[in-house]
């Protein structure tokens, strides 16, 4: 077997696209009381780099293999929150099993849907498939990046969106 110069030293196995920034947003945390869902506007400016802090769902309402559709960071950006039955890269909550993604396929913008029997997000247009347990990475297909990942955190019993890692399809910047 032959090994060639490959990648860039110690970074070669790093999950380079995903940095899993731990969001700071301490002010936002204070604003979210258990059982209370503040408006998007009320929480705006307290997430990562200007993203709104947006409560999605109560943690106690999330059984494994549950999905919750929502929009983020604005009403024109459909997204899906999943509580998986396994731990997921970048996941939050029990066993790091909760993740969320923009559902716009990063190939041509069609809506991906979750197929629990395969544990994959699949695009109906050109059949790109993404693994929610691997940061929304492309398993096979024609997208040139992972699905844009919604950054989450848990505040009391609430799963809260605080930012987006990766560009959402159809935008030159996520906040337009």
């Amino acid at each position: 077997m032959t090994e060639e110069a490959y990648g860039s030293g110690p970074e070669r196995h790093r999950l380079t696209r995903r940095r899993f920034i731990r969001t700071t947003g301490a002010a936002g945390a204070g604003a979210v009381a258990a059982g209370m869902i503040p408006s998007r506007a009320a929480a705006a400016g307290t997430g990562t780099a200007g993203y709104p802090v947006q409560p999605i769902v109560e943690l106690s309402a999330l059984a494994p293999e549950t999905t919750v559709p929502f929009t983020y960071p604005d009403d024109r950006a459909p997204a899906l929150l999943l509580r998986m039955s396994e731990s997921a890269l970048g996941g939050v909550g029990p066993d790091s099993s909760i993740v969320a993604f923009s559902t716009l396929c990063t190939h041509k913008g069609c809506p991906v849907s979750y197929r629990p029997e395969h544990r994959l997000l699949i695009c109906p247009c050109h059949w790109s498939t993404f693994d929610p347990a691997k940061a929304g990475g492309l398993v096979i297909g024609q997208a040139s990046q992972a699905l844009a990942r919604i950054e989450l955190r848990i505040e009391s019993d609430m799963v809260v969106a605080t930012g987006v890692d990766g560009l959402i399809y159809g935008r030159h910047t996520n906040l337009i």
């Binding site: 024109r76 716009l104 041509k108 913008g109 990046q145 560009l167 399809y169 159809g170 030159h172 337009i176």
Partner: peptide
């Protein structure tokens, strides 16, 4: 700029582009 006359794509980038648009993905 984001207005159609301000960019080489001729697209209104003030709104999200619909599916199958000339979207410049970061990889491009």
């Amino acid at each position: 700029g984001p207005a159609p006359g301000e960019n080489a794509l001729g697209l209104d980038l003030r709104e999200p582009l619909p599916p199958n648009s000339d979207w410049i993905a970061p990889a491009m």
